[in-house]
Measured scan of single mutants.
Amino acid sequence: DYEVGESVTVMDGPFATLPATISEVNAEQQKLKVLVSIFGRETPVELTFGQVSKI
C-alpha cells in the first residue's frame, strides 16, 4: 500500500528513474499523484501503482 508523503521511484514513462513523493492516493482506481522534482521545481504527475516502486 502507498501512503501520502512516501518516497517512490518512477519506473515508467518520461520520468523513469526519478525520485518522487506521493501527494495523493486513489486506491480504487490504482492511481497516484506524485511530485517529481525537475530542474528544482516540483511537478505534479499522475501515475498508476505499476509505474512506481517503493524506495
Results as ranks from 00 to 15, higher is better:
E28N: 09
L32I: 08
E3T: 12
S37D: 10
F39K: 12
L35C: 09
D1M: 15
I55Y: 10
N26P: 01
V10P: 03
T43D: 06
T43G: 04
F39M: 14
Q51P: 01
A16N: 07
T43N: 08
Q30D: 05
Y2F: 14
V45Y: 06
I55C: 08
G50I: 09
F49R: 02
E42I: 11
F49G: 01
F15I: 02
D12M: 11
V8T: 01
N26F: 13
P14D: 07
V25D: 01
P44M: 15
G50N: 13
V4H: 04
V45M: 08
I22G: 00
Y2C: 03
K33D: 03
E24A: 10
T17C: 12
L47T: 03
E6C: 07
S53D: 07
I38W: 12
A20K: 01
L32Q: 00
E24L: 07
R41P: 05
L47H: 00
E3R: 13
Y2E: 00
D12V: 14
A16Q: 08
T48R: 10
D12I: 11
V36I: 13
P19A: 12
S53Q: 14
P19R: 14
E24M: 09
V10A: 02
T43W: 15
D1S: 14
V8D: 01
P19E: 12
E3P: 03
I55T: 11
A20M: 03
V52R: 00
G40A: 04
A16D: 05
Y2V: 03
L35I: 14
V10G: 00
V4Q: 05
S7L: 14
V52N: 00
E28C: 09
K33F: 09
G40C: 07
A16M: 08
L35Q: 06
V34N: 00
Q29T: 13
D1K: 13
L47G: 00
L18D: 02
S7V: 15
G13V: 02
A20Q: 01
A20W: 02
L35W: 11
V10L: 05
V25C: 05
D12E: 14
F15E: 01
E28A: 13
K31T: 15
G13Y: 03
E28G: 10
P14S: 05
P44V: 15
T9K: 09
T48H: 12
T9L: 15
T9Q: 10
Q51F: 04
R41E: 12
V4D: 03
V36N: 00
V34S: 00
M11L: 13
E42Q: 08
I22P: 00
K31Q: 09
G50W: 14
V10H: 00
E24R: 05
Q30W: 07
T43Q: 12
I22W: 01
I38C: 09
V34P: 00
G40F: 04
P14H: 06
E24Q: 08
T48M: 11
F49K: 02
L47A: 03
S53P: 01
E24P: 00
G40V: 03
G50Q: 14
M11D: 05
Q30G: 13
A27K: 13
D1Q: 14
P14E: 09
T9E: 07
Y2N: 02
T17E: 08
T43S: 07
P14N: 05
G40Y: 04
R41M: 14
T43V: 15
P19F: 12
E46H: 07
L47S: 01
Q51E: 07
S53R: 11
G13E: 02
K33S: 08
E6H: 06
V36Q: 01
V8Q: 00
Q30F: 09
V10C: 04
S23H: 10
V52G: 01
T9M: 15
K31A: 07
Q51K: 04
F39G: 15
V4Y: 04
T9N: 07
V8K: 00
K33W: 15
L35T: 10
Q30C: 10
K54Y: 06
V4G: 02
R41N: 11
V36E: 01
T48Y: 12
N26M: 12
E3N: 11
G5F: 04
L47Y: 05
T48W: 10
E24C: 10
G40S: 04
P14G: 04
G50V: 09
I22R: 00
S53H: 10
K33E: 06
E28P: 09
E46D: 08
I55R: 09
E46K: 04
S53V: 12
K54Q: 06
K33L: 15
K33H: 09
M11V: 12
K33P: 01
T48P: 05
E28I: 10
G50R: 10
G5T: 02
V34T: 03
M11E: 07
E42V: 12
Q29H: 10
E3C: 10
K31Y: 10
V4M: 05
E46Y: 09
P44D: 09
